[in-house]
Measured scan of single mutants.
Amino acid sequence: SGWQYDTQCSLAGVGIEMGDWQEVWDENTGCYYYWNTQTNEVTWELPQYLATQVQGLQHYQP
């Protein structure tokens, strides 16, 4: 899939279920990364769990 979410945008106002994931701001890069509080996994790309929800939002315009 060529769909890419801009990680400089916060998910805070989007209104999706974050589940075990937390969004963390990284000052050095000026982007958010994502931290799974259960598994301690850290990812710079939007986790599939969140990406599926964001893509499903009608009002979200990339």
Rank of each mutant, 00 (worst) to 15 (best):
G13P: 11
L46V: 06
L50Q: 01
E45N: 06
N28C: 12
L46K: 02
S1E: 13
G30M: 08
L46D: 00
E45H: 05
Q38S: 12
L50V: 03
W35Y: 06
Y60A: 14
W44S: 12
S10D: 03
W21K: 00
T52W: 06
W3H: 06
N28V: 03
P47K: 06
E17S: 09
W3N: 15
C31L: 08
G56A: 12
P47S: 00
Y32K: 00
V24T: 12
P47F: 00
L57H: 11
G56Q: 14
Y5N: 04
L57D: 11
S1A: 13
T37R: 10
Q58F: 08
T52V: 12
T7A: 13
C31P: 01
Y34E: 01
A12V: 11
Y49A: 13
E17G: 05
L46W: 03
Q53D: 06
E27Q: 09
Q38I: 11
C9K: 15
G30P: 07
C9P: 05
T37M: 14
W25D: 07
D20V: 07
S1N: 10
H59D: 15
C31V: 10
I16P: 01
T43Y: 05
Y32E: 02
D6W: 03
Q4K: 15
Q55D: 12
T43W: 02
W44F: 10
Y49P: 09
L50M: 03
Q55V: 09
V42S: 13
V24H: 09
C31E: 04
W3S: 14
T43D: 11
L57V: 11
Y49D: 12
Y34S: 00
Q22S: 09
W21A: 00
V14G: 14
W21R: 01
N40E: 11
M18G: 03
M18I: 07
P62C: 12
N28P: 09
V54S: 02
Y5M: 13
W44T: 11
S1P: 01
T37K: 14
W25Y: 08
N28A: 12
E23W: 00
W25N: 00
V42F: 09
L46Q: 07
H59A: 13
Q22K: 11
Y32V: 01
D20G: 07
T39F: 03
V14A: 11
T7N: 14
D20T: 05
T43G: 04
N28F: 05
Y5L: 04
H59R: 10
D20R: 12
Y49E: 14
M18K: 02
E17H: 10
L11T: 02
Y5D: 03
H59Q: 14
Q58K: 14
V42K: 14
Q48S: 12
G2W: 07
V54N: 03
N28R: 11
C31T: 10
Q22H: 02
I16W: 02
T52N: 12
Q58G: 11
V42W: 04
Q4V: 15
Q38M: 10
Q4L: 05
I16K: 03
E17C: 05
T37N: 09
I16A: 05
Q4G: 08
D26L: 03
I16C: 05
V14M: 12
P47W: 00
Y5Q: 05
G19I: 01
Y5T: 06
M18C: 03
Y33A: 01
Q53H: 01
Y60S: 13
W44M: 07
E23N: 00
E17P: 02
G15A: 15
E27R: 10
L57Q: 13
Y33N: 06
V42A: 09
Q22N: 12
L46C: 06
W44Q: 11
A12Q: 10
Q48C: 09
W25S: 06
G19S: 04
Q48G: 12
V42Y: 04
G2L: 12
Q55Y: 04
T29W: 05
W25T: 05
N40I: 02
W3R: 08
Y32L: 02
A12F: 04
S10M: 03
C9W: 05
Q53I: 02
A51I: 01
G2D: 15
P47D: 00
C31N: 14
V24P: 00
W25C: 07
T7F: 04
E27V: 05
G56M: 05
S1G: 14
E17Y: 00
Q8Y: 07
V14Y: 15
W21G: 01
L46Y: 11
Q53A: 04
L57W: 05
Y34V: 02
W25V: 05
M18H: 04
C31Q: 12
Y33S: 08
G19P: 00
